[in-house]
């Protein structure tokens, strides 16, 4: 079992990354895009922990992941705050509507 744990984690990383990116590509809703971003970053965190484990320095991997959690939380808070403002000013969270700046 212990042998397959890294493998499992690697599959998890790829799954999270793929899901996150796919979400970012297909959603038309800003909140869902932020969620996609969250999933993507979760994949990166898991990758860091996994890397720590593979390198035999799990503590470093974990502490990096913790740092990322903090940073990611800040980014998410900012993102959601912007989303609130977007809803207020645009009256929608539709990403298609959020394309007045182009060309």
């Amino acid at each position: 079992m212990s042998l397959s744990l890294p493998l499992l984690a690697a599959v998890g990383v790829l799954g999270l990354l793929g899901t996150g990116l796919l979400g970012l590509l297909v959603t038309r809703n800003l909140i869902k895009a932020v969620v996609g971003l969250q999933i993507l970053v979760k994949g990166a965190m898991l990758a860091l922990v996994l890397a720590g484990r593979l390198a035999g320095q799990i503590q470093i991997g974990q502490s990096m992941a913790l740092t990322v959690i903090v940073a990611d939380t800040i980014v998410s808070v900012v993102a959601l705050a912007l989303a609130v403002q977007v809803r207020r000013q645009f009256g929608t969270l539709d990403l298609q509507a959020l394309s007045t700046l182009r060309r």
Binding site: L21, L40, V41, A44
Partner: peptide, 19 residues
């Protein structure tokens, strides 16, 4: 707002790649 949102999401994708 629109610029901020796009900037944030795209930067965050990039920084996840870096991680």
């Amino acid at each position: 707002l629109e610029a901020g949102v796009k900037y944030l999401v795209q930067s965050a994708v990039g920084s996840a790649f870096v991680l």
